[in-house]
Design a protein around this nucleic acid. Structure first.
Lengths: 208, 208
DNA sequence: TGAAATTTAGAACAAATGTACTAAATTTGC
DNA sequence: GCAAATTTAGTACATTTGTTCTAAATTTCA
C-alpha cells in the first residue's frame, strides 16, 4: 500500500471515529508515525483529504450501481431494490463521517457541494427510471401522480442522506444489524405506492 | 432588552447564517459593538451560548405542545396533527442552526446530548398516545403491529430531526413555503397507517 | 450621597492550526 | 554509479481562539 493510500485509510478511520473537526493533519501524521510536513506534501489540508475520500466513495457507489444495472436490468423488482439499498448503505456506512458532518462539509467545501447537487439530480433520474420499471412489472401503482412521485423521491433522498446521523444519536441495536435495519426502514417508505402484488412481495422481503 | 437577551438574539442570527463553527465569541461581540471580554463575562464560551439557545427552543416547544394539548385534547384528528407539526417545525426553523449541526453539537456538548435523548424518549410516549387517540377516532387502523408503530415513530423522528438539513442543501422553493412543504411531506409518512376515513381526511388537508 | 455590586473594555497568554520553507534522505532512471 | 526527481523530517511563522486578569466605568440600593 502506497503512502497516499495509507494516509487516506488512516484519515478515514480517524474521521469516522472523531469527526472531521477534531482531526487535523498533525493528528493523522502522528498516528502514522510521519511528520505533518510530509503529510502536507501529499495532501495540503484536511479539506483535500475529505475531498479525496468523497471521490473514493462516489467511485465505489458508481461501481456498485453499475454492477447492479448490467446484471439485472430486465427483471427489476423489490428484492433487487432492497439489495441495492443494502449495498449502497453499507458503503455509506464505511464513509460515514461524510454523512455525519453532511451540512458542515457541504457548507465548507464548494467542490463537494456542487458535485453532490449534480449527483442528486442524476439520482433522481435513476429513481424515476426505477419507478417506471417497477410500474411495468406491476409492483407499484401505475396511476401515481407527479406529486406522489416527487414526494417519494424527496423522502427517499432525505432518508438516504441522514439515516446515519439518526443512527449515530439514537440507534440502540447491534452495530452489525444497523445497515439492514435502516435498509428495511427505507423500504417502508415505498409502502403507499405498491400494488397488491407489490405488497405481497414487500411482505416476503421484510419477513425474510 | 437586556444584554443577555441581545447577545442570545445576535448569536442566534449569526449561528443560523454561518453555522456554529464559523462563529466565535469575538465575532458576536464585534457585531454587537462590545468587547469579547464582556461577552465572556455573560457567556464564557460559544458552547454556553449554544446550550442557552437550545434550552430556549425546548421551552418554546414545550409551551407550544402544552397549548395544543389543553385546547383540543378530546378531538384529536389529522388536522390537529398537521397544525402541531406546522407550529413545531416553524420553531425548529427559527433555531435551525441546532438542527443543521445536529450530530456535531450532540458530539461536543454532553448536556445537550443527554437532554435530547431524554426528550426523544418523551416524544415517543407522546407519539404513542397520539396514535392511540387517532385509533379511537377511527383515523388510523386499529390492527397496527408493534413493528409498524415503531417504524412509523422511527421515520417521523428521523424526518423531524433532519428535514432542515435536507432543506439547507436541496430545497429550491420559496423560503416562506419551506415549513409548509416539509410539514406536508411529514404527513405523507402516515399514509400507510390510515383507515379509509383517515385517508379522506388526509386528502382534504393536503389539498387545502 | 456613597459604598458595594455589577458590568465593561482591553490587554495578555498559551495552545492549536494551516501554511510555507529548508535541507536531508531516499528512490528512480539511465 | 550518479544525477535528477521525489519523498521526508523538522522548523518557523502568522493567525485564530479560548481563557484569564486588571482596572475602569456604571448601576444598584440603602
Amino acid at each position: 500500500m502506497g503512502t497516499k493510500e495509507k494516509i487516506l485509510q488512516k484519515s478515514l478511520d480517524l474521521f469516522n471515529a472523531n469527526g472531521t473537526d477534531a482531526v487535523t493533519v498533525r493528528h493523522i501524521a502522528a498516528e502514522l508515525g510521519m511528520s505533518h510536513g510530509n503529510l502536507c506534501y501529499h495532501f495540503p489540508s484536511t479539506d483535500a483529504l475529505i475531498q479525496a475520500l468523497y471521490l473514493q466513495l462516489v467511485d465505489k457507489l458508481d461501481a456498485a450501481i453499475l454492477r447492479g444495472q448490467t446484471g439485472q436490468q430486465t427483471e427489476m423488482n423489490l428484492s433487487f431494490l432492497y439489495n441495492m439499498t443494502l449495498t449502497t448503505y453499507d458503503l455509506l456506512n464505511q464513509y460515514r463521517f461524510l454523512m455525519l458532518d453532511f451540512v458542515h462539509i457541504m457548507r465548507r467545501i464548494a467542490f463537494i457541494r456542487s458535485h453532490y447537487q449534480q449527483l442528486t439530480a442524476a439520482r433522481r433520474e435513476q429513481f424515476l427510471f426505477l419507478m417506471y420499471q417497477l410500474q411495468q412489472n406491476g409492483i407499484i401503482r401505475s396511476n401515481l401522480s407527479e406529486q406522489e412521485c416527487n414526494d417519494w423521491i424527496a423522502l427517499a433522498t432525505l432518508f438516504g442522506d441522514f439515516w446515519l446521523s439518526n443512527a449515530a444519536i439514537l440507534y440502540a441495536g447491534e452495530e452489525v444489524d444497523k445497515v439492514m435495519y435502516y435498509a428495511q426502514l427505507f423500504m417502508r417508505l415505498g409502502l403507499p405506492y405498491l400494488t397488491e402484488h407489490g405488497l405481497n412481495e414487500w411482505k416476503r422481503i421484510v419477513n425474510s
